[in-house]
Design a protein around this nucleic acid. Sequence first.
DNA 1: GCGCTTAACGCAATCTGTTTGCGTTAAGGC
DNA 2: GCCTTAACGCAAACAGATTGCGTTAAGCGC
Lengths: 180, 180
Amino acid sequence: MVRPGGRSARVQAAVHTAVRELASEVGRDALTVPMVAQRAGVTPSTIYRRWGDLQVLLSDVAVERLRPDTEPADHGTLASDLRAWAEQFLDEMASPAGRAYIRDALLGDPDGRNAGQCSAYAAEQIDVILRRASGRGEPAPGIETVVDQVVAPLMYRILFRPDGLDAAYAHRLVAGVLGR
Amino acid sequence: MVRPGGRSARVQAAVHTAVRELASEVGRDALTVPMVAQRAGVTPSTIYRRWGDLQVLLSDVAVERLRPDTEPADHGTLASDLRAWAEQFLDEMASPAGRAYIRDALLGDPDGRNAGQCSAYAAEQIDVILRRASGRGEPAPGIETVVDQVVAPLMYRILFRPDGLDAAYAHRLVAGVLGR
DNA sequence: GCGCTTAACGCAATCTGTTTGCGTTAAGGC
DNA sequence: GCCTTAACGCAAACAGATTGCGTTAAGCGC
């Protein structure tokens, strides 16, 4: 159990910051626990005891960075909202940095909690868009349908077939889920 | 460049076998390179030079095990063939062992070649099913459509939302792609 | 077949990351 | 303000990763 405030919180923040800084300085693959510890002003054993190993720590940091920082933009119609969101999602996730974060989030994740969190982020964003559409009186599919037909294909291709992904593909998926 | 025959081939086979055996004996998480090397009758440095690290080796072995060993069964109709295939795919991939293999395949995979191979396996199986349907004169969707609407949702949920997956869900996906 | 070139391997020393016991610090609760 | 204990620091012991160098044996040309 991680104590919420005080020293524990400071250590967590320092370590996360150290990971982000070092990842952008020396590259994600060159990171080591002792390196992160030194930058964070902490001993390696603290990191090992708290996170277990580097992958779990990277998974934590990755989930933080995959959290959307703004609500999806309102473009007036469900179709354009979804199109814009899918486009941005693809942009962020399909980039080398995005793919690295997704992989990290999935891999250092013994109980699947971090992966579930990533999925929840996407679902929340879509929920906002769908509720907005309902508010306008537009007919809208269910969240699960959008996840299955838009989010899942995008993520599948990002992870398993990184080639040939573009905005047009995202648009086709959105058109498909809206019944053409 | 790996020489195709002779000693190199023997070493590769011995190492792969050692990984599979030890994984089932002591558990995948307990594997170490020196342990695998000893079982394979090889020195650790050989493994490090050839694969780089344990993750890459595990990725290789995982892809081997994810290769389907039989053609999809013929049940007489496209709908039943797809249903049966999706069911089996879900069974194999959603199990703890299956998820571990998927994760391994994705993890030690710098260039995305192994992940692409996994995707290709599924596409091949589906291709067989669709061609068979065409041969019968049944109308059939395209491979990409099936990948987007069946494989991708299954894989997305396996990776990001392991809960609440069952055969009924797979059946719904198949029904959806066949136009209900 | 025979020798040549070099990729792949074995060995061993070295280096770096990981683990662990023990003492200390400081949250959180009463 | 005192008490309990989770969290941390330190340092030693351990284990895995890396690398230089010598050796083996594929693959190739003749």
